[in-house]
Design a binder for these strands. Structure first.
Length: 376
DNA sequence: GACTCCCGCCATCGA
DNA sequence: TCGATGGCGGGAGTC
């Protein structure tokens, strides 16, 4: 996850004379910022559109793109039910997907909305799909949205597209699929002109960004063609305790597509560093990736702990501290003050405080379990 | 040059 | 009627 520094940079870039970088406003980053950090907490049940937009410093239109995978509760408010309801929703969606294609017996109905984000829409979509279409039952399911006059706009919604995209993974034996193939499958027979496919692929990119930021899928390459493709992670990619912090502690060490500034070029960071010196040392994502190769080495032997977003680049892992070679004494207080970002945005300050507390909590917990030599 | 995906126009929805 | 919503494609950034 790329919070909060990447987001801070995104917010700041909009107001100052820093060269604009569009990746700082990517849907994946926004998704992480909104749901995984700002809203995926105890007591948060609804998300205000204006609230999210102002907190993140982006226009409402971008929030729409993300909340399309939520269920709208009322004008300007969207429900947020956390990650807890996802397993059931996925199961429901899978059953429905099979049922739609006549390849499995399942009589689950989506009579009520059961989940959050994508799956919520998935569920609601199933109803409309089952009413409208029983088209094709070939070996590869066709999740093309049925065309029905007067309902065209709804059929093409991002939410429905998301559901069908996920169904491709859930209800087929395809381990990975390219967006191009997905677009053709989702378009259905005889519909994929180059233009419609291109449009659909663009939307799938949006969806893939959101899904990958939530760790449902990951970007990969087809082993034969080397073409970009996406692999389903499902709940394996989900955090185990449903907190924002846990997202960054997930097992995957691969670069996350669309979730943050991972593919931001050094060139651009140079610009950012010049303009925002204070943010420089504290881009957790950068830290993570810059140290990735080093990380791999240290990980190979000992099962180490995964640092969260605020792990300094030069800090040895706790697990590796048991290694005799790695007894580096770290001035934690010094690090904390050195790397503490200065946010101008109140929401960011709050968010950062939240992470600091989480970090302290985690640190004291780990320190208790594995007494290592640390300066206090 | 292909891939990626943000931006914002504008059609549609719905209060 | 008008503000809210969101599909859509242009085109810029990135690889």
């Amino acid at each position: 996850m790329a919070l909060p520094s990447a987001y801070a940079a995104a917010v700041e870039s909009g107001s100052k004379d820093i060269p604009y970088c569009r990746k700082q406003k990517s849907l994946g980053l926004l998704c992480s910022s909104i749901f995984l950090s700002l809203y995926d907490r105890e007591g948060i049940e609804t998300i205000g559109l204006d609230d999210a937009a102002s907190k993140l410093g982006v226009e409402r239109r971008r929030i729409y793109d993300i909340v399309n995978v939520l269920s709208r509760k009322a004008k300007n408010r969207y429900t947020w039910k956390g990650f807890g309801a996802i397993p059931k929703a996925l199961e429901d969606l899978k059953k429905e997907g099979f049922r739609e294609n006549g390849s499995a017996a399942a009589d689950t109905s989506c009579s009520e909305k059961v989940s959050d984000d994508d799956e919520d829409e998935m569920c609601s979509y199933v109803n409309s799909l089952s009413q409208n279409d029983k088209s094709d039952s070939s070996s590869i399911p066709k999740y093309a949205v049925p065309s029905k006059s007067g309902d065209n706009r709804k059929e093409k919604s991002l939410g429905l597209l998301t559901q069908n995209f996920v169904k491709l993974f859930l209800c087929t034996d395809m381990d990975m699929i390219s967006l191009d193939d997905a677009a053709k499958l989702l378009l259905g027979d005889g519909k994929h002109t180059s233009m419609t496919t291109r449009t659909k692929v663009r939307r799938l990119y949006d969806i893939a960004n959101v899904l990958s930021s939530m760790k449902f899928i990951e970007k990969t390459h087809h082993p034969e063609t080397r073409k970009p493709a996406f692999r389903w992670l499902g709940l394996n990619g989900k955090p185990d305790n449903g907190t924002a912090n846990s997202m960054v502690l997930s097992e995957s060490k691969k670069r996350m597509f669309g979730t943050d500034l991972t593919n931001t070029t050094a060139k651009r960071f140079k610009v950012d560093e010049d303009a925002h010196h204070v943010l420089k040392p504290h881009n957790p994502t950068r830290v993570k990736h810059e140290t990735e190769s080093e990380d791999e080495k240290t990980r190979s032997g000992v099962k180490s702990y995964h640092y969260g977003p605020f792990a300094p680049a030069n800090v040895p892992k706790v697990g590796s501290s048991h290694d005799d070679k790695g007894k580096t004494v770290v001035d934690w207080e010094s690090l904390a003050s050195t790397y503490r970002p200065q946010y101008h945005n109140q929401a960011l300050k709050d968010l950062f405080s939240h992470y600091v507390e989480a970090w302290k909590s985690w640190y004291s917990e780990v320190a208790d379990k594995s007494p290592i030599q640390l300066m206090s």
